[in-house]
């Protein structure tokens, strides 16, 4: 019974994350949405590692979760760096535009 609860929660998290990843416009929210998605999958995997018939724990899904967490951390890091760079580029562009406008004003 608890396994089903965990599985359903995991799938719900996946769907919530998917929704955020597609709908939210801000990059940070998208990245967080991706993280929620992967957390959902990991919960689903952990629930899958319990064998109801024997009561044993299967080691393979747990190894998959560990690998998955490492991969997810890497992707989050790269995505955060990219979005920071993007923000810097946007700031720089805005500053340059402001400066040019000020120079034009001074010229007049």
């Amino acid at each position: 019974m608890t396994t089903i609860l965990y599985s359903v929660t995991g799938l719900l998290l996946f769907v919530f994350g998917l929704f955020a990843l597609i709908v939210c416009p801000h990059p940070l929210r998208k990245i967080l949405g991706g993280n929620v998605m992967s957390a959902g999958i990991f919960l689903f995997l952990v629930a899958a590692s319990y064998r109801a018939d024997t009561g044993e724990i299967d080691a393979v899904p747990q190894a998959m979760v560990l690998t998955g967490i490492v991969v997810s951390v890497c992707i989050t890091a790269v995505a955060l760096v990219l979005s920071t760079r993007l923000q810097q580029a946007a700031d720089q562009g805005a500053r340059r535009r402001r400066k040019r406008r000020r120079e034009e004003d001074a010229g007049e």
Partner: peptide, 17 residues
């Protein structure tokens, strides 16, 4: 590109599970 490929591989991973 990164976010799309993240979405694609998450979907693939859920299929694997």
């Amino acid at each position: 590109y990164l976010l799309v490929s993240l979405l694609g591989s998450m979907s693939y991973l859920l299929g694997v599970v």
